[in-house]
Every structure is written in structure tokens, then in C-alpha cells.
């Protein structure tokens, strides 16, 4: 049986509505709680973090040792100098690639 595309779209709009609420709240909650910290206070990050703690009773599991009252955003903010260096690097990559392509022709 063929389904009405409008009816299908209504469902996707509802899913988007639910997910938008989740994403919006994720941005707010990241101000006070690391988004990689789960409900059991375990760290789910794939990278190292100074707040990770080893629990001797649970091998292979890292817990989050932070007191939970921190603004996660500064970790995302880069210094203007670092950003300028990186921007310069990006310009160089583009230039080098262009020269390389020109020479290979």
C-alpha cells in the first residue's frame, strides 16, 4: 500500500521537533556538565581528559571526577593567536595544493 508523502513528512517534522528540543537543551546543559559524562557519571569520551578517574573496582571504566559545576565552553574556545596560526596554516595548505596541482599538469 502506498503511503501519502505528506503524512510521512508530518512524522519527520515531529522527529525533527523532538531532536531540536534535545539539541537545544544539550547546548544549555553543556554549560554546567560535560556532554561526554553519562548518567552514571562515567566518561564516554574517546580522548583523554584531566578529569577522568580510574575506578579500581571497575577495570577499563573511567569515571568523571569533576564536581559537575563547570562551564564546558572555555574548553572549546581557542586563543586568538592559536586561531591566527591555524588560519595561516590553512591558507598555506591551499596555496601549496594549488602549486602542486599546477606543477603536475
Amino acid at each position: 500500500m502506498s503511503l501519502d508523502p505528506d503524512q510521512i513528512q508530518k512524522r519527520f517534522d515531529r522527529i525533527t521537533e523532538i531532536f531540536s528540543g534535545i539539541v537545544e537543551y544539550a547546548q544549555t546543559s553543556s554549560l554546567s556538565r560535560c556532554p561526554y559524562r553519562n548518567a552514571d557519571d562515567l566518561c564516554t569520551a574517546l580522548f583523554k581528559c584531566r578529569n577522568q578517574e580510574v575506578d579500581e573496582s571497575k577495570p577499563g571504566v573511567l569515571s568523571c571526577g569533576h564536581n559537575g559545576t563547570f562551564d564546558y565552553r572555555p574548553a572549546w574556545e581557542s586563543s586568538p593567536r592559536a586561531w591566527d596560526r591555524m588560519n595561516q596554516k590553512a591558507v598555506e595548505i591551499k596555496k601549496e595544493a594549488s602549486i602542486r596541482r599546477k606543477n603536475s599538469c
Binding site: 512524522r11 522527529i15 523532538i18 531532536f19 537543551y25 544539550a26 546543559s29 561526554y36 553519562n38
Partner: peptide
Amino acid sequence: LEIMDDGLIAGMSIVGIKFRENFIYVP
């Protein structure tokens, strides 16, 4: 459509509420 409405979307809407009320987190 019934599976989406009464199963998948209905379940996810409860997840959204639990997240908003801090019972669960992003992971």
C-alpha cells in the same frame, strides 16, 4: 506510519522529556 507514531516516535518523545528533566544525559 503506526510503527513510527506509536512505537519509535512515541518512545523518543519520552527520551526527550527525560533528557530535558536531567534524568538522562547526552550519551
